[in-house]
Design a protein around this nucleic acid. Structure first.
Length: 486
RNA sequence: GGUUCCGUGGCCGAGUGGCUAGGCAAUGGUCUGCAAAACCAUGUACAGCGGUUCGAAUCCGCUCGGAACCUCCA
């Protein structure tokens, strides 16, 4: 089951060509550093991708890079954002693109997202975009004006339903538009450019049947999704803020250019807010990944590891708004550590019998959660159920060999494969981990000896000093264990 | 102004007609030399007001509050 934005309800999902599955996600415009809000969408769909793969689908995951074509505003003049940035930084537009594409990849890698199968760029598909424009014109749904080509929304709406995704009515849209662009070339304010004539100062430009220009923003996604996934494919995702007009226009272009509407399911990730307001490049209400990791911002009390932020995001449903705050992050961090230490403890438990815990039922409820529109928060609540069970056992799990093994693999699959979390404690000790663990073990033995001698001053010193370097000592019935925090 | 969505215990956050997630914090207890960790117990929360129903946090209406979109944004 997944929530389909197109129908506004949860629908049973079935793949068009199982086990193959096509997933398209709208990527970023690479004209500035990604912020956390951007990241959330990609992390959400990374989880979707991971779970679909886990279920056995052979997913082709396509996520574009928009490296051309954005206009600053709706007016007919205006620079595209990349060109503007290039002018400000005195660089080639493609240097800007390269720079921020690298930044984007770097940041997403920190969040442990899996790269898409194909990551096409808009500028790499100019030819295909021109082809689609020709088809749309042939279908009679676009017109040329002074070297630009516009999509005729009213005409399209005669036989189709423009607004079906965003729930808008064409009449309402018309009455809602401001009538100030008297000299506009468009026949109607609702029409949108699919090809734009380049002004003399415009740097990024390509030849076309209509003269030198550049493609309209909405077009690239229609072109690249259908090129790599087919005229009909399974899932299209993106941020909620792209629903209108971007995705609405995509549907119209698809239908006009190919005769099909493209994706069968639309999924929209919701916004990450900061102080209750959407993070947005244009308003400056943002938090950068760098600030999150380092804590070097007045918006956070300290820095957080990317996997903590990821865990925090996974504790909310992808379709809900989520507000970012220091307190919420710290709560997530503690929860994360509890879950992870239970995972580590599980590795040392032996099989046995008599436990009041049905691994089978528990496992089924994990899948049930994820099958219900990727409900990661409910999944996590199930993971904590398992954690409580594990923490309540000493030495013997009370589970049969099979059940114990099933518990381990299921936990592993969901924590690491599906949610994409990383094991910080292990990663932190890095290359020399074995040596480090041996050294700590020696210290713990010394401390045990000191305790046996009732030399508590010494034993407490060892404990406190280990704590000072981030190693927490946990006394148990059969000796002490420890965990390393980053 | 129009469209859509949301308002859940101290905080975060699921659920969406009866069986009332989870995390963090808090309180009590077990354990401990003391702590920490862990475990056990404890919260009758669903913005307000009406209505439908045997029964509503969940459906309907109104009011209040917040957000997103309607211009580029994930």
């Amino acid at each position: 089951m997944l929530y389909n934005s197109l129908s506004r309800k949860k629908e049973k999902f079935s793949a068009l060509n199982a086990p193959h599955l096509g997933l398209y996600v709208c990527g970023p415009t690479v004209y500035s550093e990604v912020h956390l809000g951007n990241c959330r969408t990609f992390i959400s769909f990374d989880m979707v991708y991971r779970y679909l793969r886990h279920l056995g689908y052979k997913v082709r995951y396509v996520r574009n890079i928009t490296d051309a074509g954005h206009l600053e505003n709706d007016a007919d003049e205006g620079e595209d954002k990349i060109a503007q940035r290039a002018r400000l930084e005195q660089l080639e537009p493609m240097e800007i693109v390269q720079n921020y594409t690298l930044n984007f990849h770097e940041v997403l890698a920190k969040f442990n997202t899996i790269p898409p199968s194909i990551e096409p760029t808009a500028t790499g598909h100019i030819v295909e975009q021109i082809d689609m424009i020709v088809k749309i014109i042939e279908a009679g749904l676009a017109y040329e004006k002074n070297g630009s080509v516009y999509f005729n929304v009213a005409k399209y709406n005669e036989s189709e339903n423009y607004g079906e995704l965003s729930g808008r009515k064409i009449e309402e849209l018309i009455s809602g538009t401001r009538e100030l662009d008297a000299q506009s070339e468009k026949e109607s304010p609702l029409d949108f450019a699919i090809w734009k004539k380049a002004s003399p100062s415009h740097i990024m430009r390509w030849n076309s049947p209509w003269g030198e220009g550049f493609p309209g923003w909405h077009l690239e996604c229609s072109v690249m999704s259908t090129k790599y996934l087919g005229e009909e494919f399974d899932i299209h995702g993106g941020g909620m803020d792209l629903k209108f007009p971007h995705h609405e226009c995509e549907i119209a272009q698809n239908k006009a250019g190919t005769g099909h509407k493209g994706p069968r399911y639309w999924m929209h990730g919701n916004m990450l807010t900061l102080n209750g307001q959407k993070m947005s490049k244009s308003t400056g209400n943002t938090l950068s990944p760098r600030e999150l990791f380092s804590g070097d911002t007045d918006k956070l009390e300290k820095g957080f590891h990317p996997t903590i932020a990821r865990f925090f995001m996974m504790q909310a449903h992808y379709g809900s708004q989520l507000d970012f705050s220091s307190e919420a992050l710290m709560a997530a961090e503690k929860g994360y550590h509890r879950l992870m230490s239970a995972w580590h403890k599980l590795q040392g438990l032996a099989s046995g019998s008599g436990a009041d815990f049905s691994v089978q039922e528990w496992r089924a409820s994990c899948y049930a959660a994820m099958n219900d529109d990727f409900n990661s928060p409910v999944l996590i609540s199930q993971l904590f159920e398992a954690a409580s069970f594990i923490n309540g056992r000493e030495g013997d799990s009370g589970l049969s060999d099979n059940d114990l093994e099933l518990l381990k693999t299921t936990l592993h699959d969901f924590i690491f494969e599906v949610l994409g979390l990383e094991d910080i404690a292990h990663a932190a000790s890095g290359g020399g981990s074995d040596k480090l663990e041996e050294v700590v073990q020696i210290l713990l033995e010394l401390r045990m000896q000191a305790r046996a001698d009732r030399n508590f001053a010494l034993s407490d010193t060892i404990r406190d000093q280990l704590a000072a370097v981030g190693i927490e000592v946990k006394d148990g019935k059969d000796g002490a264990t420890f965990s390393i925090k980053s």
